[in-house]
C-alpha cells in the first residue's frame, strides 16, 4: 500500500452533510485506528449510512474533511478513494451479474494488481488483453488461482464456479465481503453486514471481520444488531440525529445514559 499506515488511520473531522433542510450528519469527528473494529451505532436515521457515503466518496460533505493518514480523501471519486485504501460494502450487496464468484474476486484482484486502480494508464492493458499475450494470460490465470485461495480462506471454496445470479442473500453478503478484502484495504467500511443473515452466516461474517482486524485493517462497522456489534467492536461511536453523542469501549457506551435514552426514545417515537 502506498499510504503510510499510522496508529490513526482514518480521520473524520467536523463532517456535516445537509440535504435541503435536513442536517443528516452534524459536525462529527472521530478517528479509526489500524487493527481495530470501530462500531458505528445509532437509531434509524441517525446518519450512519450518510457518514459512510461521505467517507467512501459517494457523497461530498457539506462541511468538514476526511483523511487517510496524511492523505486527504474529501473531494475524490469513490474509485480514487478505494485505490488509496478505503473500500466498502453496501446495505444491499452489489453483485457483478454475468460473472462467477471466482471472477468477481478476480476483478478485485486485478484492480489491486495495478496499484489499486483499474484500468492502469494508458490503454496498454486493453491492447495486451486483446492481443492475448502469453504474459497477460498467465497473469489472469494467476488471478484465478489467487481468487480460489481467497475464497478458500473465506470458507467459500465450494462457490467458485457458481454464477453470481444464483447466490442466496447470505452468500451475496459473504462474497461482497471477500471481494472487498481482496483489494487489501487499509480501511474497510461495512454497512449492516449482518442484516438478513442466519446465525451461522453471522458467525462467518464476524470471523472474517476479526481476521481482517488481525491483519491490521481498520474496520468500521454499521450494524443494527447491537448485541453482535458490541461483541465484535473494540470501540464504538454512537450517532443520534446526525450528532455524535458517545464514543468509547462497548461496555462504557452500553452503560451511557445518553445512548440508552437515544435508543429507548427511538422506540417510544
Amino acid at each position: 500500500m502506498t499510504v503510510a499506515v499510522s496508529a490513526t488511520t482514518l480521520e473524520v473531522r467536523g463532517v456535516s452533510m445537509r440535504f435541503g433542510g435536513v442536517l443528516a450528519v452534524d459536525d462529527v469527528t472521530f478517528a479509526a485506528r489500524t487493527g481495530e473494529v470501530l462500531g458505528v451505532m445509532g437509531p434509524n436515521g441517525a446518519g450512519k449510512t450518510t457518514l459512510f457515503n461521505v467517507i467512501s466518496g459517494v457523497q461530498r460533505p457539506t462541511a468538514g474533511a476526511v483523511s487517510l493518514g496524511p492523505v486527504p480523501l474529501t473531494g475524490h471519486s469513490v474509485d480514487r478513494i478505494a485505490s488509496l485504501g478505503v473500500t466498502r460494502t453496501f446495505q444491499t450487496p452489489v453483485m457483478f451479474w454475468g460473472l462467477t464468484v471466482r471472477e468477481s474476486i478476480a476483478v478485485a484482484l486485478a484492480a489491486r494488481e495495478f496499484g489499486g486502480s483499474y484500468p492502469p494508464p494508458p490503454a496498454r492493458a486493453l491492447l495486451v488483453a486483446g492481443l492475448g499475450t502469453q504474459g497477460r494470460r498467465r497473469a489472469d490465470a494467476v488471478l484465478n488461482e489467487r481468487a480460489d485461495a481467497l475464497l478458500a480462506s473465506a470458507g467459500l471454496a465450494h462457490m467458485g464456479d457458481r454464477a453470481t445470479e444464483s447466490l442466496a442473500f447470505g452468500e451475496e453478503r459473504l462474497l461482497e465481503l471477500a471481494r472487498a478484502l481482496a483489494v487489501e484495504p487499509v480501511v474497510l467500511l461495512l454497512d449492516e453486514p449482518l442484516s438478513g443473515l442466519n446465525p451461522e452466516e453471522v458467525e462467518d461474517v464476524l470471523t472474517l471481520v476479526r481476521a481482517a482486524r488481525t491483519a491490521g485493517v481498520a474496520v468500521l462497522l454499521v450494524e443494527h444488531a447491537v448485541g453482535e456489534l458490541l461483541s465484535v467492536a473494540d470501540r464504538v461511536v454512537v450517532l443520534d440525529h446526525g450528532r455524535k453523542i458517545a464514543e468509547g469501549t462497548p461496555s462504557a457506551v452500553a452503560a451511557d445514559p445518553l445512548v440508552i435514552d437515544a435508543y429507548i426514545g427511538d422506540e417510544l417515537e
Binding site: 484492480a111 486502480s117 483499474y118
Partner: peptide, 17 residues
C-alpha cells in the same frame, strides 16, 4: 461486466468506470 452490473460496487474496489 462488473461495471455494467454494479458500477458503484466496482468503484469501491478501485475500478475507474
Amino acid at each position: 461486466i462488473a461495471i455494467s452490473a454494479g458500477e458503484l460496487g466496482a468503484q469501491a474496489l478501485g475500478v475507474d468506470p
